[in-house]
């Protein structure tokens, strides 16, 4: 097995880089996307702490959270094997799975920005190779999984951190969309920790054939968001 870091090899590191990569300040523009929460708020599905927590738990366990986790792990494995063709195949699948124009933009714009930012500030030959092998549209979980393996971050660590940060981003969006206070939002984030951890245990053994989501209505909502009258978010 060759490492994806290429000739210079990965310098194993802990979780420190993830605090930067997955922070709201990292230049991927995460604040611009709501994954159709804006429509859910408009439609009256997300109105308070309880409905927000329930909606997000479904997106996590039965929706794009689980799917992105599987894709992240497969990108990680492709990187660990130094297999750029496999990486490109996982990315093609990930980008194609976007169910609407806005959700495609959400994942592919963040993924490309993430890869470019890590490449610029945490350079590695493996990142240059990936940037060259991938098309302009890079799915966000694929970029994160690959960058993590190149930098020697453990898969279990990046998987958990990624899922948790995605949920936290959506809670931040929800606070701007529904009458939910800071404290309630923080409680929702804390409450999602256990399901994130449980999901992160289940995901690593899953194959690309296990991909699949049940959140049909949330995806339909992302289509309807495109024509929503007032919009703060790009998705």
């Amino acid at each position: 097995m060759t490492d994806a870091g290429g000739a210079d090899g990965p310098a194993p590191q802990g979780a420190l880089a993830l605090f930067a990569w997955l922070s709201p300040g990292f230049p991927v523009g995460a604040y611009a996307y709501s994954h159709a929460l804006e429509w859910a708020a408009e439609a009256g599905d997300v109105t308070d702490e309880a409905s927000l927590k329930s909606w997000l738990a479904d997106l996590l366990l039965h929706g794009f959270g689980r799917a992105d986790g599987i894709l992240l792990c497969h990108a990680y494995a492709a990187g660990a094997a130094g297999d750029l063709a496999a990486l490109a195949a996982v990315n093609a699948r990930a980008v194609a799975l976007a169910p609407s124009a806005e959700l495609r933009l959400e994942t592919s714009q963040q993924g490309r920005s993430f890869l470019d930012a890590v490449k610029a500030a945490w350079p590695r030959p493996g990142l240059d190779a990936a940037a060259a092998a991938l098309p302009p549209d890079v799915a966000y979980p694929v970029a994160v999984g690959y960058a993590a393996v190149v930098h020697g971050v453990a898969q279990a660590t990046v998987l958990e951190a990624f899922l948790f940060s995605v949920m936290q981003t959506l809670v931040s969006a929800a606070l701007r969309l529904a009458p939910i206070g800071q404290t309630a939002g923080t409680r929702v984030v804390a409450g999602l920790m256990a399901p994130v951890q449980a999901l992160a245990v289940d995901i690593p053994g899953l194959t690309l054939d296990d991909l699949g989501t049940a959140t049909f209505r949330a995806d339909l909502g992302s289509m309807r968001h495109e024509t929503q009258y007032t919009r703060l978010f790009r998705s």
């Binding site: 609407s100 124009a101 049909f216 209505r217 339909l220 992302s222 024509t227």
Partner: peptide
């Protein structure tokens, strides 16, 4: 409840 979206040379609806 229905909606449509289009991108990349395709149109999807639900």
């Amino acid at each position: 409840e229905c909606g449509a979206s289009a991108w990349n040379g395709l149109l999807a609806a639900r």
